[in-house]
Design a protein around this nucleic acid. Sequence first.
DNA 1: TTCTATAATATTGTATACAATATAATCATT
DNA 2: AATGATTATATTGTATACAATATTATAGAA
Lengths: 148, 148
Amino acid sequence: MPKEVTLNDQICFQISRAHQLFNKFYQEPLEKFNLTYVQYITLLSLWENDGVTVNYLSQKLGLSNGTLTPLLKRLEKAGWITRNRDKADERRVLIHLTQLGKDNKEPILESVQGCLNRLNYSDDEFADAMDTIVDLQHRLEKTNENDK
Amino acid sequence: MPKEVTLNDQICFQISRAHQLFNKFYQEPLEKFNLTYVQYITLLSLWENDGVTVNYLSQKLGLSNGTLTPLLKRLEKAGWITRNRDKADERRVLIHLTQLGKDNKEPILESVQGCLNRLNYSDDEFADAMDTIVDLQHRLEKTNENDK
DNA sequence: TTCTATAATATTGTATACAATATAATCATT
DNA sequence: AATGATTATATTGTATACAATATTATAGAA
């Protein structure tokens, strides 16, 4: 008799749960900055590389431009970034951090790190967990590739 | 000098990516049934326990009723389930699989399993990956608990 | 029994998320 | 230089996702 397929045995379901829990997890450290989790991740990318195109962010974050355009407009409205057409190539929109966006890097990272510390990962445990997740990604990417 | 915080070092980001990749991954096996990943997960729960309330599904799937109500309406419209007020307690809505929903259990599971096999997990690797992810969930839950 | 508290679901508003399409600018070839 | 192909972003339509609120039904107390 084949084993019954159950919800909790599905690795996709457990990944989804972890994703949901992270969204909740980030609410507390980001609340005082009025940022969502995805907006924070976007700022994180801009703190690494500022003055980039929507397309670059789309690749880096793995989000479609249909997701990013409205998200970036909200970040602009809140004063974190600017959106300007590239004068050298007007198809492009260049995203730049504002002074506010730059000045708040440290406070935001500190607030987040304070929460991350509470996860109580040792360096080894953390590295192992990351390896497991990235390995899963590679398996999924390889399979998704084959579908094309 | 403190180490620079980068996007790819964030475990939240890697979990998000895995979540996105799973959504893509499930498109192929579910396409012919016109189901999304979340709808599939919902059916999976109903194949385990049929005739349950919205609240039960909400707990089981970890989704709010604000997410589930429209999702269940779409599943109803497509003929997979029925939604009926419980005559014994008319605050409740009971969700039942239709004959279509029952009859398609095996074909859907087979289609999905065919794709899952391509991930090439050994039993041990799979168990380890699951442990890692569930352990992460517990760390997140514990931390989220403390916030209340 | 009537009033209140509680419980279960639905609705509203905001924010992702993406496929498909549209728009506009640039590039490439002639 | 004209035009066809390509590139970059925006828009539209559909589907999650949740907090806050509304609605309706039940339960409990006086």
